[in-house]
Design a protein around this nucleic acid. Structure first.
Lengths: 333, 333
DNA sequence: CAATTTATTGCACTCGCTTGCAAAAAGATG
DNA sequence: CATCTTTTTGCAAGCGAGTGCAATAAATTG
């Protein structure tokens, strides 16, 4: 009826005929226990189904082993992949992921971080949304580590991991130019996150450097549907673009579908498209999209490695390169 | 240098000039505190940046507020959606999700459940993989609740949520028959999970009921690539199927792409396809796939509602219906 | 074998919080 | 104003584990 209580170290100790400390030490790597005692403890623990209470351990050690992942739109292919990589790699260093969903509002990120503090998470990794400065300060002051992925920020303390978006955008421009394109456009969502904007800026800049003006269109969230709508706007212009760099693959897929099915344009012969993220769908043969791959595993690895090291090394900022994956949505290649 | 210690209730109490208990009561809904004391406590807490330590609270109350989500392949569209719905709805009842990644081996589910026990999770929700009976027993014995989604199991205790897969398969058959199809096939992965097998069985059965033999092909994991391979096998048969029911949308997408791009078949005029899950991509205009929608939000709601109620009601089994979403991959409709 | 060093063990305190209980304060009643 | 209720409040005993310290046992040395 009432919640059956979990078995505690005390019970194990009694059964094994040793003190409670012996049990505790048996499950603490590096503690001093004789082979004989350990054996008896382990045996008793097994028999009783004992599992160390990490709540209590965390309380004592002041280190819970919990890492908070704060994310919005986690059902989006790129986010889901990142989430998977992170949870997996965290597990491999004996930490555990707590995931908190936020909507786009900064307020909800604050709520999430508060929750992280309540559970005394050792660290928080923010995949989306900018938390309020006062809250991140609170986290840091509480000895919590903070990782910001693809968020620009100049504050000291958190680990910043982001891509060299500008450079990627530049390379996209070159690639499209080599393919013989004349009229360039950039398809963006209206989310205006730092990384999306960096791609936009980078592409524009590259255009300027070549004396070419780049049309930019932004609409809605970063989704398939937005891509289709941006396509409408771009492809009905008097001077129709024949090269479009999309801020994300999701936008690119929507845009390509609209281009083909509504405007009857052939890709890549009449329209070249480059995306960003390298989500799984980009490789599907209906899209076969040339795109930049986010080094998801690398990102997760960097984050986890930084969290795993015992002493806080000075917070640094890692900039990774996105790899250009050539497929069939650009001529030549 | 060393982890700055978090601020505790003691400090808040001192600053507010009240006892530790007063602080505790202020943050415990329904406890007896005067308006005046509460005000002072809240003020002090705010000033110091105090947050209740849920580790300690969980220890005392023997109820952590943590719910473990055990999932494999969480970067798959359907899984990601379910995960999102669950984390969100859990948050809304003041519980928090811990997610554990498993690979397909049952062993890794055991490891995950062990972890859940260590953190004294109030419940575990298993989205994939069958845990060993002894482990689920352990969970239940420890007063942990268990929810199994789309997993058949006849044990008492856990809440079982699954779809009426057989019925859906039957409806799929009828729909394809109405579309005038002659040769029926079922495309499956080799994962052989209960729900995938139920769909297969249901479809075969429906065929048998109409005196029609259904060809079944299974291959690999439940993925796009597997769909393409199954397509190869099915579409090169001497008697080529003109109706294929796919165990999942991912398979369906791979299959459709192969059918169109490798076999130059037009959908739906030469080949009708029905999928399962209603992932986002099914609605993309390149696929425009007729499919069965998993009621993801409903599933999450049922699970969360059951977990939220204070007293364990007798474990029951919920069977939900999948809704047929008509799109363009089947003639007629 | 005594003396010294080293490995193991148990005691007791601590971590931060909840809660039963009894004392104190505030309100209600006659 | 005295008496009886009803709130509030603080004390202290846990919850389940980790760990410094001193006591004990085992191993090493001369």
């Amino acid at each position: 009826m009432s919640r059956k209580v979990f078995v505690s170290a005390k019970e194990v100790a009694d059964r094994a005929g040793v003190s409670r400390s012996a049990v505790s030490r048996t499950f603490t790597p590096g503690a001093s226990v004789s082979e004989e005692t350990r054996r008896r403890v382990v045996e008793a623990a097994e028999a009783l189904g004992y599992h160390v209470n990490h709540l209590a351990r965390g309380l004592m050690r002041n280190e819970s082993g919990i890492v908070c992942l704060i994310v919005s739109e986690l059902d989006t292919p790129y986010r889901a992949r990142l989430l998977k990589a992170l949870t997996q790699q965290l597990q491999s260093v004996a930490k555990i992921a707590m995931v908190i969903n936020t909507d786009r509002s900064d307020d909800s990120v604050d709520l999430a971080l508060r929750q992280a503090i309540r559970y005394r998470a050792d660290a928080s990794i923010i995949l989306s949304g900018m938390p309020d400065k006062s809250i991140t300060d609170l986290c840091l002051k509480n000895g919590q580590r903070l990782v910001l992925i693809n968020r620009d920020e100049d504050r000291e303390g958190p680990l910043l991991i982001n891509l060299n978006d500008r450079e990627a955008a530049r390379r996209a421009f070159i690639a499209l130019q080599r393919a013989g394109c004349q009229t360039f456009a950039f398809a963006n969502s209206a989310a205006m996150t730092p990384s999306l904007m960096a791609r936009e800026e980078g592409f524009r800049e590259a255009g300027r450097a070549h004396g070419i003006e780049v049309v930019v269109e932004r609409y809605g969230p970063t989704s398939y549907r937005s891509g289709a709508i941006v396509a409408q706007r771009l492809l009905t212009r008097e001077k129709r673009p024949d090269a479009i760099f999309c801020a994300s693959d999701l936008l690119a897929c929507g845009l390509m579908d609209a281009a083909r099915h509504q405007f009857n344009l052939a890709v890549p012969s009449e329209l070249c498209v480059i995306g960003f993220d390298d989500i799984e769908q980009a490789s599907w043969s209906s899209y076969n999209l040339t795109t930049f791959a986010q080094p998801v595993e690398r990102i997760a690895a960097e984050a986890v490695a930084w969290l795993a090291q015992p002493s806080q090394t000075e917070a640094n900022s890692h900039k990774l390169e996105a790899e250009l994956i050539w497929r069939g949505s650009v001529r030549g290649g």
